[in-house]
Amino acid sequence: MGHLKEMVGANAAELVVVRHGQTTWNATDRLQGQAESDLSDTGVKQAQAVADRLARGAKHITAVYSSDLKRASETARMIADKIGCAEVIEMESLRERHLGKLQGLTRAEAQTAEPEALRASFSSDMDEPIPGGGESLNQLYARTKAAYEDIALRHLGQRVVVVSHGAVLRALHVHAKGVQPASRVRNTSINVFRITSSRDWSLRLWGDVNHLQGTDLLRAGQGGDEIH
């Protein structure tokens, strides 16, 4: 993570995107989407670990942004406190994918109660929404692209932290690399994107969880991010 000590070029912004800590619903395989659940005790420890890591290893962070869902905003607040940033800027547009009728169900429950919604959540049809008000992949991709480019254009020449969600990070990987990531997005993983003033994306770091290595927090941070 040595490049996080470097200055950022004037024509780009560097977005250090962190997935929130584990939640009580993550721990029980319950689908969250835009529903609220609390950080678990493990999730709090993960958030503290990533906050310590960024405070030690990253320089010139000028702002902290977050989804307005509390699992993200609480993680962001711990990071902001550690790096000495007074404000966390919460944005609704940074929320997790809306999962419609799946929200609040375990995967096992969804297979029985909402099989059509579960199928739609994995559909290869980019325009197919999840029943019950859920988003299609194209809706998720358009929302995340606009939100992150907006942040980048506000902060050209700067490095900012953004605390977000698993499906959102998978969408950002598509924006930068053109493909879905091969691995899951772990809780409190560090992922670094560079977005230029002409809205060109590149990926500088993906899935860094060195702050969890050697602890029992790493296994808990692997949670199924595919649809939450």
Rank of each mutant, 00 (worst) to 15 (best):
L205V: 14
S189R: 09
R170W: 08
L203D: 06
Q103R: 04
V209F: 02
I195R: 13
M91Y: 04
S123K: 10
E114Q: 12
S124L: 11
E14N: 04
A27L: 00
A55V: 04
R77M: 06
E6F: 08
A110I: 00
N11L: 11
D29Q: 11
R107E: 05
A13V: 06
L39M: 09
Y65D: 01
D81E: 06
R219Q: 15
V192Y: 13
T24I: 10
A117T: 02
N187F: 08
H211F: 06
E36Y: 11
E14A: 01
R119D: 03
R154T: 14
S73T: 04
K59G: 11
A86R: 15
R194V: 07
A47E: 05
D29H: 07
Q46G: 06
T23S: 09
V161Q: 05
A142Q: 15
Q34G: 03
T75E: 09
R53T: 07
S197K: 15
G33Y: 11
H98Q: 05
R97W: 05
N26Q: 08
V50I: 02
G166S: 13
E149R: 10
A80P: 02
T62E: 10
L15D: 10
I89F: 10
R199T: 12
A182R: 06
K177H: 04
H155F: 09
A152T: 06
A146Y: 14
S37G: 09
E36D: 15
D52M: 00
D125W: 08
T196C: 14
S197E: 12
G134S: 11
S124F: 13
L102R: 04
Y65F: 09
A63K: 01
Q180F: 06
A220R: 01
G2C: 13
P129C: 02
A51M: 01
Y65W: 07
S40Y: 01
S121H: 13
D200N: 02
G223N: 13
K177C: 13
M1H: 12
Q32C: 05
G104L: 12
Q180V: 12
N11W: 14
A49Y: 02
E226D: 00
Q213S: 15
V162L: 08
E114W: 13
S121G: 10
G133I: 03
A80K: 00
K177Q: 14
P131S: 04
Q158T: 14
L137G: 01
I190C: 03
M91W: 01
L105F: 09
R219D: 15
N187C: 09
A58Q: 03
E226S: 08
K59H: 15
E116G: 13
S40Q: 01
V16L: 12
T24V: 11
E149K: 05
N138W: 04
W206L: 07
Q139E: 15
L99V: 08
Q158Y: 03
S202P: 13
A13T: 02
W206E: 08
A182W: 11
T196S: 15
D38T: 02
D127G: 05
H20M: 03
F193A: 12
L99H: 07
L205W: 03
G221N: 05
L118K: 11
